[in-house]
Computed example of a mutant assay.
Amino acid sequence: MDPSSVESLEVPDARWCAVTGGRGFVARHLVVALLRSGDWRVRITDLGSVAVLEPTENDGLLGAALRDGRAVYFSADVCQVAQLTQAFEGVDTVFHTASVDHNNNNFQLHYKVNVDGTKNVIHACHICKVKTLIYTSSSAVVFDGVHGLFDVDESTPYPDKFHDAYTETKAQAEKLVMRANGINELHTCCIRPTTIFGPGGRIVPLLASYRGIRIIMGDGRNSDDFVYVENVVHGHLCAEKILRTKEGATKSGGKTYFITNMEPMNMWAFLNMVLEDLGYRSRFRLRIPLYVLKPITWFIEWIYNKILSRYGLRTPEVLTSKTIVYGTLNRTFNCNNAVEQLGYKPIVSLKDGVKMTTEFYKQFGA
């Protein structure tokens, strides 16, 4: 769509921003928050030819904004600079959230989207004289899949060996975004959310599909830093607000920031809280040691990879060795830098986030 075609419908004091991967989980919440603020008009970019809205979106703020011009959908591929350039024309800030499903371990695909795609986003920002670029990264870029992490901050180095294609290419994209800071008056930073949950996410539907059956992997003592999706969105908005000032750009430009709910807790206790809010009573609680789980998982993956993959089947996410190991390690992060430098503070508590998420799925389903 030609940006000039909606000029007459613009809100006079609002600025244009663009959200790549705009129909993804975090991006959907980000787009709504940007529109709700009244400070932004939003270019939503994604691969689909049209923005297919859920009923709740069509009748809500997003649907109204698309109809009156406060939001515009662009079919744009991050692998195509020309498409990005059209979408970013006249844009003040780009929120780059586009990524490949982390469960797909195709390195070439991840590299094409996460690395080459990010290069294209940066190039299009330079062409269009975009002022601010906020990249949605992941806390997993410092995780090697073998060693646990406890209260680590941004000084933690990238691992020598990454545990999958997603994290390796996300880390490479981070480096590109950080190096782009200050070039052609573009200010950048990277947001590293921890384990995200919320309406539209995967955690609750996955748990609901097992109807309350509890299986604890390992010793059950590991903690995680879950973060509600609206807090992730808030972290992005805090970063943009800081980077638009000269002092903030000097202090925070080219940096990375962990974003958490600042409520680390035992992973299994969190999952149990979600299940109870969904109304499931525990059928049984089975604790399986890791030394038993690993060979079983490797065998299942071998069966899928060698035999069933020819029929288009892949190992269920819950039974991959990656998931098994992840489910037994500590993964907690310190986000004091985001608090002190970005002015970040969670706006939704963990308990309230779980409540709102489970109520959503009770009403609308997975």
Rank of each mutant, 00 (worst) to 15 (best):
T250P: 01
K241L: 07
V177H: 01
A208D: 05
C190H: 03
E240I: 01
K251N: 14
H163D: 12
F150Q: 14
L176I: 11
F226N: 04
A180C: 07
K175C: 06
I191H: 01
F258M: 03
K246P: 11
D153K: 08
I203P: 00
I213W: 13
T167K: 02
A239P: 02
I216K: 07
V233H: 03
N181K: 10
V152Q: 10
T194I: 09
L206I: 14
K170R: 10
T245A: 06
Y257R: 02
K246H: 15
E230I: 03
H187Q: 15
D219H: 14
I196N: 00
E185W: 08
M178R: 10
A171H: 03
G148K: 04
T250W: 12
L149P: 00
G220V: 05
P159W: 12
L186P: 04
H147G: 07
I203E: 09
Y228C: 01
F150N: 13
G218H: 05
G201F: 10
G148V: 08
L186N: 02
Y228M: 04
T169P: 01
P199A: 08
V229F: 04
C190W: 04
V152H: 08
D153Y: 02
H147V: 07
T169I: 11
V177C: 09
T250K: 15
G212M: 03
P264V: 06
Y228V: 01
D219V: 10
M178G: 00
H163S: 13
R244H: 11
P157L: 11
G220Q: 09
